[in-house]
Design a protein around this nucleic acid. Sequence first.
DNA 1: ACACTGCCCTGCGAGC
DNA 2: TGCTCGCAGGGCAGTG
Length: 284
Amino acid sequence: MPELPEVETVRRSLLGAIVGQRIRALHVGDFFGVVGSDLPENVEARIAGHVITDIRRRAKYLIIDLDDDTAIVVHLRMTGRLSTVPRDAPPLRFERATIAFESGLDLRFSDQRKFGRIIHLHANDIDHLGRRLGIEPLSPGFTAAWLAERLRRRPGKIKAVLLDQGLIGGLGNIYVDEALFLAGINPLRSANTLDQLEIRRLHRAIRSVLRAAIEQQGTTFSSFEDSDGIQGRYGGKLLVYGRGGKGPCPRCGTPLQRTVVGGRGTSFCPVCQPLVGNPVDDVL
DNA sequence: ACACTGCCCTGCGAGC
DNA sequence: TGCTCGCAGGGCAGTG
């Protein structure tokens, strides 16, 4: 599923391809995922003729700026993909929407599970969206001290807290499991029981795992590719994600365990990530 | 304000 | 081989 590194990878691959392109038409069909401050058919009319001026990322949102004060905001959710193809290319599998450019290029949105969203928003709505989202974990403001201050007030499970987009924007299930493993912290730990050393390790792990994943153009395990069809290489570097109950800990060899936190499948090593401090519950 | 649950959606793999 | 069933989970609404 696309998280911050995957969305950033898509952003970078789209920059050269579609910035400066003039929109000829938006084709939505009966896909219900086009939403925003107006009806889909009105969105189609509003964006036609406008030029893409920039592509930004905020958390897991891709913001495609137009030359008025609006943007096309895309969230890929679980299985959404963006591809650029020539206009005469056959429909992609699970194709849901197309932005056709005057140049003859198409930006195609495909999504097996229809969870993804395309939203046409005015600048002030984008500001509002940005205010609902938490800090960018790769921004200078995301420091160990900042994290310590926030975690101090959160009694919930550390994994669920890290997945809270209103606190930190862009972390998802893959990179939270990886970061917690690297930091040696059990996902069920109550966030406000982490000590300063653990928080410093966690902060460092979050940033390093995100940077490394961006470097490798994201994680491709089922369906993620960038807009040129390039597959991310970080999947081969995953240490624990998706392996609970299946494989050994890459560090100590203990069988990785699987549990569920916040409705998400969670893999961890019971030895390298011991449940110490004040456990949220005693399921282990 | 925060924690927690269920919902959306559908291809895929496991099991029989 | 072909069927059924459960799993995958980001964001959001609803509840406590």
